[in-house]
Design a protein around this nucleic acid. Sequence first.
DNA 1: GAGCTATGAATGAAGG
DNA 2: CCTTCATTCATAGCTC
Lengths: 221, 221
Amino acid sequence: MMIIEWDQQQQQDSQPQNQREENGNGVIYVNAMTDEQLETLLKQIAVYASICEQLVEMHKNLTAHQNLTGGRLGNLYCDPLMTAGGHKISARQRWTPTALQLQILERIFHEGTGTPSKQKIKEISSELSQNGQISETNVYNWFQNRRARSKRKQVVAVSSNNNAAESEVETKVESPKTKPENLLVSQAEQDVCFQNREISSQLNHLGGSYHFYEQHAWQGE
Amino acid sequence: MMIIEWDQQQQQDSQPQNQREENGNGVIYVNAMTDEQLETLLKQIAVYASICEQLVEMHKNLTAHQNLTGGRLGNLYCDPLMTAGGHKISARQRWTPTALQLQILERIFHEGTGTPSKQKIKEISSELSQNGQISETNVYNWFQNRRARSKRKQVVAVSSNNNAAESEVETKVESPKTKPENLLVSQAEQDVCFQNREISSQLNHLGGSYHFYEQHAWQGE
DNA sequence: GAGCTATGAATGAAGG
DNA sequence: CCTTCATTCATAGCTC
């Protein structure tokens, strides 16, 4: 049974998987993996490949059946019960991003330079308006919130070892940057960190915690 | 099986995973991989992870249009089987304050200023952590909700009974004429939140048990 | 075991 | 930016 804290990016457990063994001539890197572990890794890759294929398949099927229901279906004005009784039920008054809009926003958020400039906001909202009602204010707010909350999460992740007086020296020394950039998958981890809990959990597990596999082989049955 | 844990729950971490280098017979199998090779493997996994994420995003987007919700989609959590928490052996998906914690929280809420500052949150949560699992986010949310709900009850009480007397009224009073009509809507929306389980379970398979995914026919419709 | 209620959590928006 | 509020979603637990 293992436990993964998916968005805590501490490096406390980053036990190197590779054992470095030095000989006289230099350094030889030996990865002490058992066959079982290696097999697990390879299987994971294969599984991902299969899943990707199947997801693509699903996507194709769905898009084939979709008739551009984009519009404002999921959004403001089409609540199912709206006209059920003959009189209107006041639906939500606050903007809710369409899945499509969200997708685009997330993409921009990740690729972009954290600066949602005025001009950019205009562009984005005009682009998003093709997928549903949206205003520039919505976009602005979305970015504000997105940034703030993602930041807060990271802060929370970093904390939890904060003790009172005496630790200030060490923290002062070490605090500026304690991000685990040594993991080569950390980029992917960042990308998915705050999108969807269920997805990122899985992906982070796969990407960021590969060194866990061994002991807790996923004997699903 | 494995447990995915996210930030709200801080559990005592399991012991660090070390390489297992022995099999049943006590023989050690070591694959002499270079770092480069290993890195390649891991990169492949990371890449697949990203691709899968994108695909899942698309899928969710499409299914969202199908079931007309327009609300949040797929807010499913992962499926931890059990917890190392305390007394609960069931799936732990959201924090529940223990009686002791609740008591303390209530006390602080009543005595304290209505503003639970950042620093205070830290203190409180650290204090409460002695009585069970808790995180700062939990405390933060708790105060948010507590305040909001106490406030709302006051409002409702006032609106139904024009008694200008007191402030600490927190009784449950139902307003006859200001009943929120959109209750109907939200109730209806509950009926359409099932399709996402599909994708979520798929993801669990993705991360947790690759043996299983073959058994499931994904393309339902 | 199906509905209901209480409540933890997520998030759009507003204020400063 | 950061904090706070209001609203909503999803679920844990109770009731019947």
